[in-house]
Structure formats: structure tokens, C-alpha cells
């Protein structure tokens, strides 16, 4: 059993928790993830490591309530325990050696991108951040991002906070203005990452994306997380989850992630459908803006 040390609501649907897991904390690096299981009957669900306190032996996670497992986790309070917490899994990000980086996060992807911004900043890289949210009510981590970046651009779909538009609108603006980055990190819904990569590829700006295929074990055993990278099959849990965005077959990933839609619907109808629908409408810049 693993104890929840701290819990904080970042917005109505996004929660940050610190979990007591010394073995994970000792080895955790930016870019890696854990798999949690709330209770004995629960699924194993992957979440990116959002922060670590090695001395205290705790690991932070930031997650959006999407379906049953994340809802059950969000219902837990500090002091409660959960059944499983395994990690760190996957490859650490390679962030050394860049002068100027642009970190782009969309929705809950903003949380997943957060540690990359912090690490780049600590390595002496000049960091700009574009963080995209649906509206004012769900903006989170603003102060933390500001502290880790030179320029922070907060975007909301409806303009209720920061600037109006999608992260790709801001990216286009920056690229058109001739801004140069030697690394772009883009993390968010698949259509967002696909759209970002389409733009950065034109400028030949190296772009890392973090993929979120469906996972069972997270250790290379099931092959459920297989993704197509440059025409080759890779397992996101051991070879990734970060990959060179130019090489990723996003359409294949989008298709595979719909695998359990009907099963999950049966199980957790109301809650999930509503949120997933909102998320998909809003986070798809390609479908919605053009």
C-alpha cells in the first residue's frame, strides 16, 4: 500500500498528489511515468511523474479525472492509501545541451510538460512556454510555469484568460515572427501534438512529444502500447514515452487509443463520456479552427 501524503485540486477536474514511494523517488527522472492502481479490483493506469522529493521519498502526480480509475483516485484524501504504485517506468527525457526551448502543453498535457520546463530551466536553457486551456476556470500551474520560463503564453479557447486561441495559434505567431528554438517539447492531446509537429517540421525544429497509448503492464510485456515510430513498431512504455515527433504516426496512435471506448463506456458511462467529449471537441485545433 502506498500513502497519499498531499492532495491539492488544481481545478475542478485536475488534481495533484504526492505519494509516499521512496524506491520510485530515488530513481525518478523527468519524462518517466508510474502506474497506479487504486484498489485491488482496479486497472493499472499510467501517469507521468510530475515532481519528486528524493529526501522525503515522495513522487508527485497530476491527473485529470477522465474515467473510473482517475475518479476513484481523485476521491482519495491525504492520509489514505492506494493499492499499487510502480515505477519509474520508461526512458528519461534527454534535455541536455539546448540553448532555447519552447515547451507547449495542452490541457492536462500542460501538467505532463511541466517537469520538462523546470528541468530545462535548471540546465540553463532559455525556456518559453505555451500553455493551452479551455477557459479561465481550468488554468493551473501558472505561477510555477512563470518561475521556470522567460515567456509564458497562456491561451484559452474562449479568451476568458490570457490570449484567445489554441496553442498552435501562438506557435504560428512565434514562428512567423522568426523566433528560433533548438528544442520544442509538445505534450497534449494527439491532434494537438500532430498539429504542432506539422508546423515545427517545416522549420526543422527538433520536437519531442510524449505519447499516451493504452498500457497494461508498463514494462514491455504486453505490447499493448505499441506505436509506429519511423515505420517501426516501438513499445511506448520501454522505448518511450517520449519520441521524436517527426517520426510518430499519430493517426495510428489515435486509432489504437479508441480500443476500449465501448467497454469503458459501459462501465463508466456518464462521467467519462461527458469529459472525454468536451476534451475532444476543444483540444482538436485542426478540426475546430480550420
Amino acid at each position: 500500500m502506498y500513502r497519499i501524503v498531499r492532495k491539492e485540486k488544481l481545478n475542478a477536474n485536475v488534481t495533484r498528489m504526492s505519494i509516499d514511494a521512496p524506491h520510485v523517488a530515488v530513481h525518478a527522472n523527468v519524462g518517466q511515468f508510474i502506474m497506479f492502481r487504486v484498489y485491488e479490483f482496479g486497472e493499472r493506469v499510467p501517469l507521468t511523474i510530475a515532481g519528486v522529493d528524493r529526501e522525503a521519498g515522495t513522487v508527485d502526480i497530476i491527473f485529470q479525472t477522465i474515467g473510473k480509475s482517475t475518479r476513484l483516485l481523485a476521491e482519495k484524501e491525504a492520509g489514505d492509501t492506494i493499492y499499487g504504485f510502480v515505477g519509474p517506468l520508461g526512458q528519461p527525457s534527454e534535455l541536455e545541451g539546448y540553448d532555447r526551448a519552447l515547451v507547449i502543453g495542452g490541457g492536462v498535457g500542460t501538467a505532463i510538460a511541466f517537469p520538462s520546463a523546470v528541468k530545462l530551466n535548471r540546465l540553463g536553457t532559455k525556456v518559453d512556454v505555451i500553455a493551452g486551456f479551455k477557459n479561465k476556470d481550468i488554468v493551473f500551474l501558472e505561477d510555477e510555469f512563470r518561475a521556470a520560463s522567460e515567456n509564458l503564453y497562456v491561451m484559452t479557447d474562449d479568451g476568458s484568460y490570457g490570449e484567445e486561441g489554441f496553442v498552435t495559434n501562438k506557435l504560428k505567431q512565434l514562428l512567423d515572427a522568426g523566433e528560433k528554438y533548438d528544442l520544442v517539447v509538445a505534450i497534449g492531446p494527439i491532434p494537438m501534438m500532430k498539429a504542432v509537429v506539422a508546423m515545427t517540421k517545416e522549420k526543422e525544429m527538433k520536437t519531442l512529444v510524449s505519447l499516451n497509448p493504452i498500457m497494461v503492464d508498463g514494462t514491455g510485456m504486453c505490447g499493448g502500447c505499441r506505436v509506429q515510430i519511423g515505420g517501426q513498431t516501438k513499445f511506448a512504455c520501454v522505448d518511450g514515452p517520449e519520441f521524436d515527433g517527426f517520426m510518430v504516426d499519430f493517426d495510428d496512435l489515435a486509432r489504437r487509443n479508441r480500443s476500449y471506448l465501448s467497454e469503458e463506456e459501459d462501465r463508466d458511462h456518464a462521467c467519462r463520456l461527458q469529459i472525454a467529449a468536451e476534451q475532444f471537441d476543444h483540444d482538436d485545433p485542426v478540426q475546430n479552427k480550420e
Binding site: 497494461v216 503492464d217 510485456m221 504486453c222 495510428d252 489504437r256 480500443s259
Partner: peptide, 15 residues
């Protein structure tokens, strides 16, 4: 082989 509904036996049996 990446179609939705293609499993490795490991995934199928582990689930």
C-alpha cells in the same frame, strides 16, 4: 497488425 483488436497473447492473457 496495429488494428484495434489485435492483441499479443501476453496482453490478452494478462488482462
Amino acid at each position: 497488425e496495429n488494428a484495434v483488436g489485435v492483441y499479443s497473447a501476453n496482453e490478452y492473457l494478462t488482462r
